[in-house]
Amino acid sequence: MSDSDQTNIIELENVDKFFGGFQALKNISLTVKKGERVVVCGPSGSGKSTLIRCINRLEEHSSGKIVVNGHELTSAVKDIDAVRSEVGMVFQSFNLFPHLTVVKNLMLAPRLVRKSSKSEAHDMAMKYLERVKIPEQADKYPSQLSGGQQQRVAIARALCMNPLVMLFDEPTSALDPEMISEVLDVMVDLAEEGMTMIVVTHEMGFARKVADLVVFMDQGEIVESNPPTTFFEAPASERTKLFLSQILTH
């Protein structure tokens, strides 16, 4: 453990990220405590996906400090796989393994990483499939499921690792409109059970309902971060006001 407060699951301090000459993240600092729900929003290209991809080191930050559950992420971090196994992630494009059935998608990581027995992994997979309300799809292949069902499987797959925190990278952006609510419902349930979550999304209804903190990013910077009531009722920055007027007028 570092000298940080033990209830801080994620700490970012002055994080910069460059892609070649382009600066995707500028001096980002953010702390997420156990049980907190943070919603990150902002225009496309603002760096919000890059931000959460740095938290499980799918992208390596260029400078600054990222601490996940007491482990600082550096190029020397020996057990990045162990850190990642504590951090669940849900992707915009689901990324289910197409050659495995739904239940085997869920069993793969517990079997290989947690060394669970086949029956343990299977029981856990079925438990989480029931939680996302599609146990009857267990033996189908991902391509036989609707987008909403696939994303719920992806959430269940991440939950099977009993993560300390869940990262959502625009989980509903690739979905047909009628499937968005089934995925959001699952996410609201998770939030109500106390899961620590960082959610990149444009679903402002979700943000109002569950977020403890709404973070607005633009051009790689955190412009504003406030509880939802303040954020929506009294945005401090002009850029936030403009963004909200653009997405809320419809």
């Binding site: 796989d81 990642r84 951090v87 990324n95 990483v113 992806a154 797959r157 690792m161």
Partner: peptide, 15 residues
Amino acid sequence: GLKEAGAALGLSATH
């Protein structure tokens, strides 16, 4: 994205 999903679950590069 599939390799990233594997990485995000904590699977080693070999796995």
